[in-house]
């Protein structure tokens, strides 16, 4: 990690859905080797933030840089765990197929996954304790196992910075522990992880840093410094009502009707 640039730098990021702003003027600089939780109420723009960083949503304004470059130049160094519900688990693929998709970004056009890619995929499955399930169709997995398949796919990307969208949603306690162990191991290898998280009490235990988000950055810093009643109140409570009212008005003004 001898990069002179920060793994992620966000400047004045604004994202809107149907003219209604979801994120407003977000500024962030992320250090390498941190395990960062993104918390905030529903509709605070947590998923939107990570999707916007990876160019999955159009930006209204601002820019995002990965290691000093645009996402497209650095796509190979960015790993992603989408929400589990974002895909159709009846899709005709098995566990191994999904994990191998993590290697696709490194493969050129027209190239098939090689033996080396398969062994990387197997190692990643091993790490999330799913190797025995490699040939299973993905519909025949429990929710926690499906989530670990996604994690294994991200591991197979061998990225330097990871975005994870609610990796703990709907998983059992054992899976949650297994996932957090893997995340810490990645952090100790110097990777940067940004994890959207729903549950405040565990957020405090799991993450080095917390990003309190509600349409913009309420606070960002070491968990111990940021996890205070006052800041949480700001994130979840009244302070931002003005902002959301304005957004509401804008939506009504701009949207069709």
């Amino acid at each position: 990690m001898s990069d002179p640039y920060a793994p992620l730098e966000i400047h004045d990021l604004t994202v809107a859905y149907h003219k209604k702003p979801v994120l407003w003027g977000v500024d962030l600089v992320i250090e390498p080797g941190r395990l960062i939780g993104i918390v905030g109420p529903n509709g605070a723009g947590k998923s939107t933030l990570i999707k916007a960083c990876m160019g999955l949503l159009p930006l209204q304004s601002g820019w995002v840089k990965f290691f000093g470059e645009s996402f497209h130049k650095m796509a190979r160094r960015v790993g992603y765990v989408p929400q589990r519900e974002s895909v159709d688990w009846d899709f005709p693929v098995n566990v191994m197929d999904v994990v191998l998709m993590g290697r696709y970004g490194r493969l050129g056009v027209l190239r098939r996954p090689s033996k080396a890619d398969r062994s990387v995929a197997r190692a990643c499955l091993e790490k999330v304790h799913l190797l025995p399930y490699a040939n299973r169709q993905i519909a025949n997995l429990s929710g926690g196992q499906q989530q670990r398949v996604f994690l294994a796919r991200a591991l197979a990307q061998e990225a330097d910075i990871y975005f994870m969208d609610e990796p703990f949603a709907g998983v059992d306690a054992a899976t949650e522990a297994a996932i957090i162990a893997v995340l810490r191991e990645l952090r100790d290898m110097g990777k940067t992880l940004l994890v959207v998280h729903h549950d405040l009490p565990t957020a405090r235990q799991y993450f080095d840093d917390l990003l309190l988000l509600n349409m913009n950055v309420v606070a960002f810093g070491k968990t111990a410094d940021v996890f205070t009643a006052e800041l949480l109140q700001k994130t979840y409570g009244g302070r931002l009502t003005i902002l959301s009212e304005v957004a509401q008005a804008l939506g009504a003004h701009g949207a069709s009707r």
């Binding site: 702003p21 500024d27 069709s256």
Partner: peptide, 27 residues
Amino acid sequence: IARWRRRRRAVLPSALSDDSNPVPEAK
């Protein structure tokens, strides 16, 4: 046509500047 007109009015920036409460700064 109505949509195109609305887009040309550039809702977001003008509405923002109209508003007396600026976007809170990030800490």
